[in-house]
Structure formats: structure tokens, C-alpha cells
Design a protein around this nucleic acid. Sequence first.
DNA 1: TATGAATGAGTCTTCATTCAT
DNA 2: CATGAATGAAGACTCATTCAT
Lengths: 227, 227, 227, 227
Amino acid sequence: MTKTVGHSKANRNARNKVARNTPADNKTARKKPKFLRRGPDRRRQIIAAASELFARNGFEGTSIRDIAAASGVLSGSLYYHFPSKEDLLFTVHQESLTAMRNEVETAIAGISEPWKRLDEAIAAHCRILLGGRVTRAILTPPRYYNLRGVRKLVRQRDDYEQIFANLIDDLPLKPDCDRQAFRLSMLGAMNWTVFWFSAGGRLSVDEVGRQIALMVRGAAKDAPSKK
Amino acid sequence: MTKTVGHSKANRNARNKVARNTPADNKTARKKPKFLRRGPDRRRQIIAAASELFARNGFEGTSIRDIAAASGVLSGSLYYHFPSKEDLLFTVHQESLTAMRNEVETAIAGISEPWKRLDEAIAAHCRILLGGRVTRAILTPPRYYNLRGVRKLVRQRDDYEQIFANLIDDLPLKPDCDRQAFRLSMLGAMNWTVFWFSAGGRLSVDEVGRQIALMVRGAAKDAPSKK
Amino acid sequence: MTKTVGHSKANRNARNKVARNTPADNKTARKKPKFLRRGPDRRRQIIAAASELFARNGFEGTSIRDIAAASGVLSGSLYYHFPSKEDLLFTVHQESLTAMRNEVETAIAGISEPWKRLDEAIAAHCRILLGGRVTRAILTPPRYYNLRGVRKLVRQRDDYEQIFANLIDDLPLKPDCDRQAFRLSMLGAMNWTVFWFSAGGRLSVDEVGRQIALMVRGAAKDAPSKK
Amino acid sequence: MTKTVGHSKANRNARNKVARNTPADNKTARKKPKFLRRGPDRRRQIIAAASELFARNGFEGTSIRDIAAASGVLSGSLYYHFPSKEDLLFTVHQESLTAMRNEVETAIAGISEPWKRLDEAIAAHCRILLGGRVTRAILTPPRYYNLRGVRKLVRQRDDYEQIFANLIDDLPLKPDCDRQAFRLSMLGAMNWTVFWFSAGGRLSVDEVGRQIALMVRGAAKDAPSKK
DNA sequence: TATGAATGAGTCTTCATTCAT
DNA sequence: CATGAATGAAGACTCATTCAT
């Protein structure tokens, strides 16, 4: 009944080093820039490849070799950069959430009208989500990984979603509207788009965001339409 | 070092009937209850177990052995009932969709007011979804299976969702509201609940449905509140 | 390095019963002819089906279920008639060899000229071999089965081939011709036909036999020797 | 009860070089000689082991684990060198055919008398066949593999056998001798030797070849025909 | 840093065999 | 006699991971 995941001896000990490997500190950790290293950053390449593959095929559906191939490396080499597949997932997550946070915070900066702020946040969230640069795993944190890892993951995600919680707190909503349910439903509507949106289809990314914002307005006390 | 997969503990409660047959007590309980679980019940048991596991862990995240163990059989025995894991998934899908269709159609039968019909449909969808009897896989058809199989799957799901399309067609919506986007967003809000709803939490299943219905009302031309 | 074949508990004990199950004594062993039993003889049906399948796909390439299906039974039922797959093979063998022996002995009966006798024996051997009623396994006794079984098999085959040894003994051959090598090469030429002969092709079964007889004549005393 | 597969004992002598790496002594000999068997030799070792095992036990009768064990590797490692068992078979085939072609072409080079050329070709074919370095599978292409693969196999084999067709074309044969049947029967006589020849027996490899050549001469124009 | 090669546990699946009915 | 259902060992293959070079 207990499923084991891999045989990752290095998981615990090695994770510490990398887990907080934000873009910030791999700038400092870079040593001996040999002439052999192509591209500006192998590590970035790997993250990008992993991000896309995880998003497309899921965590279990993506093999380390897939990621390696997409990064132009052999699978063994990945382990120089990341101690385990799970760690790579965590990093991808973190990067994704950071990117989303940036996008959303930038989008709402300087706007004060509450509904307008929400509109922009929704638009930003959809924009980055459907841009294909973030991982589907963000959205569906697999509950079955070892707990330590997932807790961190979930905490990060919750931190990000707190932005929306704050936005919603500022909204005048009908009294029987539960703000938590509202937030989660709204995020659901947005996140779900990854399963049906297709680039180049009838609806543009922007239009998708606009429609969700439109739908969500309804909970307002007086259901005001956008002006 | 082997990592354990978290939820393994949580499995117990959901499987009391079957749990007796785990490898652990094989040694003592063997041989006697073999023929007791015969008949078409076995098939149902397997479908139920698979449904739950697929829902919790995804298709790739669920092993045939997991399903077998949860059904009180050995892995080889599954193949007496289903020709392949994929086939099992398809069956689970079909059953899930049939169950959902029944629940929803029953719920809206005899109701004529369009918004009320939608309310009931939402409630029914959430009810069955969060009852744990349907598979997350319905919701996120993995694109990478063999195409023939998936096409069938997607067609079935689309057939089901057509119910909602029809419901929405009858709704008086604001002119700038795209009915397709509306439907997909609404389904997203509902389907996403499987990722955050927890039974016994603050919100009941019914309340969740009510809140989604509430949110969604906003897109109405005049945003009428429930009476 | 040691491969186990199945988990056939019943092999030894049960084999005794069946191993000498010639057509002769299953006529006596037949009891209670219920109205349910279709066809003259289930047992024969199974042997026929097995014979053809072994011949076409080899021993490992044929599953008990294949044989069962081809006999109109379920796999479990085969075990009423034969204690194991290997035993079935042995029976098939025996039947094949008996059939071949009959065919060959009939063909040469009443002929006295040694070369003519050989011609007829070759023709008969090819006839029955290419008639599809005997198993390829006769020809290539897999050396890796449990020794007891194979030894019996090989003995049977050698008994049959003794007919040819006798035929050859009567032949006036060149002094440097080794009669054993002659026999084995000739049998090789004949047996190999199963790998290339195709019914309905340019050459008839009879013609194939004739050509082999023709080729083989070369070893005659008065054939031209190497210079 | 588990049956052992006979020849397992006979494996030892043929595998002395590698046998050290069997599971048995893994415990003591581990970790040290890992990198010693690197390089393209591994590939050769695997091909050699596979060739022998396929020849002895057939394709279905040989497990990937058998081959791995005989190569001093674990089964998973084979897949680093060959993408599939079938692919390994194809490679073994190709190597075998190449080896045979070389041997035969070398043997007949510089000889002009047609019968003498055939004698040498037969000798060469038998020599390499009975040297144990080629696979029985060459000879009996199992018809049930995926068609694409088998077709390639068969084509290769036919290419090789074309050498003999050419040789035979130069032969003055009796008018009623079918040259195709002659070739196939002759090849049958040769190929069949793998089923009866035993090294160290009464007949040497060379003698076997000589005897087949002798037998085959019968089809010569001036050999005595049937009366 | 990267790679080639290996590892070993795990995956899905097949199959000979058993046995209660 | 036949069947439906199960068993469990083995099969081919995958994959995260390791490590000497």
C-alpha cells in the first residue's frame, strides 16, 4: 500500500543545498567558467525544459531523460545541477510562482479600484499560465510525494494565492458569498484553462481573462458591469 | 533510502472492506475467503478502487499493483477482468460520466426556470464529484495516451458537458459574455474543487455548489440574486 | 542461470497417467458419455489444435489459452485432459511420430529395390510433414525441457528415424560415405522443408520429395566421385 | 515444484570469462570490476552471449535476464546497448550473416571449378554454423514477430543464400533437377546439422561438410538417374 | 562539468496452473 | 467435464539514480 518513489538516496541531504537555490544565489555559486560551457546558463535551460515537459506531460509522465534530452545534456549530467527529480520539480515550482507573483504584482501596481485590480490580476494570471512557461503541477500539487517536499510546495502556492485573497478582501461582495470559496472557485476557473485553452484558437489569452473576470463580477452586491 | 508516498495511511479508512487482503495478513487469512468475493462484484470493486486511486494519484501515479491491492486481488488477476490498464481507465471514465450524467439529469428534471436549472446542475455535479466516486482523470485527459483511446474519452466527456452547454443556452446573459468561455470557466470552477475541497471541512459539499452557483450568477444580464 | 518453467506441481505424479495415453487406451478409459460432450473426442480436438499451433508458433510461442481457444474450451478445462503443457507436447509428439511411422511403413511395404524404398520413404515423410499435421517440435526437440521428458521424446524420434537407418543400410553406398551422416543430412534436407515449403507454391509436396530423393542419389556407388 | 531447465549446467563452460559476475558472487566481488568491462567490448559480449543463447534455446526460450547474466550485466543494462530484445536479435542476425558471408566468400575465392566451389562453400557454411557463433534464429525466422522486423531479417538471409544460388547456377545438373529445390534441400541438410552435431563427437566439423558435399553430388548430370 | 555505463527496483503484462463450483 | 476466477512467478522494458572517468 505504500509506494516508494525512486531510490533517491540523496534526497534529504542534498536538497538543502539546492532547495533555496533562487536565481539570486546561483549567480554567486558559479565558478570556473570554462570555455566548454555553452549558452548562458545550463541550469536555466534545464528548468525551462523541465517546466514545459512537466506542464505538458505531468510529473510522472516526464522522465529525467526527456528533460535531459530537451536540455541538450545526458541524464547523468542533470544530477550535477539538481539532486533529484523532485527537487527539480520544486525548483520549477518556485520559479513559476515567482514569475506569476511578479507578473500579477506588476499588473495591479498603481491601480486602486478593487474590481479593476482583480480584473488585472486575473488577466495577468491567465497570461502567464497560458504562456506555457509554468507547470501544470503548480496547479495540482500531487499529494503523494513525500510530505516534506509537498508542504513546502503548498506553502509557496498559498503564499502566491494570498495575493488574490487580499484583492478579494477589498471587494464589496454579497453577504452570503463566502470569500474563500469565491477565491478558490475563481482560481479554479482560471487554472482550469490550461486544460482547454489552445493557442491560436477562437479566444485569445486576453479574451479568456476578460471572460473570467466578467463571470466573476456577478457575485458583487449589485453586479456592476465593467465601465 | 525509500520515500513513502504519504497518503498511504489515508487509504485505510476508504478501504475497510478490502483491507483485510493486504500482503500483511495474507499469511493468516489466506485460502479461506477466496471464493467469497466472486461474481460481478469483483469487477465493481476493481472499478471502484481504480476510480479512487486514479482520482487521487493520477493515471501514471497509480500502479496496477495498487489497484489490485485495493481490490483484494493480486495484480495478475486484474487482467482477467480488464485487458489493460488503459482499458480500465476508459471503463472508469465511462462509469463516472454515466453516473454524473444521471445525477445531473435527475437533478434538473422537472425544473423549468433556467437559472434554477443551472443551480441544480452545479449542485449535482459537485455532489458526485466530491463524493469521491469519479476520477480526476475525467477532468484532465492526459494528451499523451494512444490517440484512439483518448479521442473516445474526450468525446464522452464532451457529450456530458453538452448538458451544461444546453443549460447555458437557455440563460439570459450579458451580450459580451461568451457562452463557451462561460461554460468552460464554470466547469473549471467546479472541477477544481477536487483539489481543494476536503470532506468535513468548513464548507459542505452543498455549500460549495451554492457558492459556485452564486458566483456564476453574476454574468446574468441583470445579475439577479437568488430569491 | 536456471530457468524454471511454470509452477507445475502436478508434473511428475500426473504424468504417469497420461504419458502412455495412446489412442488405444483412451477408448477404454472413456466413461459416462454424457449428452453434453460435443464431437467425437475432445481429446483429439485438443491434440489436433495443439499440433497445429506448436507447428506454426513453436512451443514457447503457443500458449495454453491459444490451444484452448482453438479447441473450443477454456484453458482450465485442458487440465482435465492433460496434466501439463509439456505433457501435451509429448502426446502431440507421440501421435505425430506414430502417424509418420505408419505413413512411411505403409509406403515402403511390398517394395524391395533399396533405392526405390528410400524414394518412397522420403516421399511419405515429406507428405505427412508438409501436410501440416505434425509439429515442428518433433524436428527440433528443445533441449532445455526437464531431462526426463526430453529423453523420452528423443528416444521416440530416434526409434522413428531408425526406419531410415535400416533403409540406408540396404543401400550400396560409396565407401567414403558415412551412413550416419548420410541419414542425418537427408533428414535435415527433408525436415527443413517445413521452413520454406508453401502449399500452393510452384512445387507440389510430391515434387519436393522427388527432388530430395534425386539429390540424395548422388551418394550411390556409381555416382561420380570427387576428382 | 519447480522444474529446472536442463542445460543450465552446460552453460558454465561456455561462459567462464563472464561467469564471475553471476548473482551468486555479487556479494563478494561487487563494486571493484565495474569499470573494467567498459568500452565497445560490452556490446560484443552481449551479442556473443545472445547469439549463443538464441542458438541454443530459441528466441522465446531465451530471456533478457539470461543474456544479461551471460554478459555479466544486469538485465536493465542491456537496454543501454540495445533498444529491445528483438533489436538484439536483429543485430545478432546481421552479424551472423555477415560472418557467414565472409567465411564463404573467402573460401571460394580463387577457385574456379564449380563443384569444387560448392564443396568449399558447404565446408565454410558448416564450419561457421557449427562453430557456435551464429544463431539458430537465422535459420528459422519465426513468422510471428512484427512483420517489419522479420521482413528485414528474411531479406538478409535471402541475400546470403543467393551466394549458393549463384554457385548452383554454375553447376551442370540433371535436367529434371530443380535448382531452387536443390539449393533449399542442400541448405536444409547443412542447417539441420545444428540439431545433431556435437563437438567432440565421432565426426569432425570438416567431415560433416565433406559428407554433405558428397551426398549432394548426386544431382550431377552424370550421376545415375532413377531407372 | 559532462558523459557513458551500470544498477536495481519498479512497471505493465502474460501465462501455466489450480480449484471451487 | 467444464468454467470462472484467481494465483504467482516470470517476462520485457523503464527509469531515477550513481559514479568512474
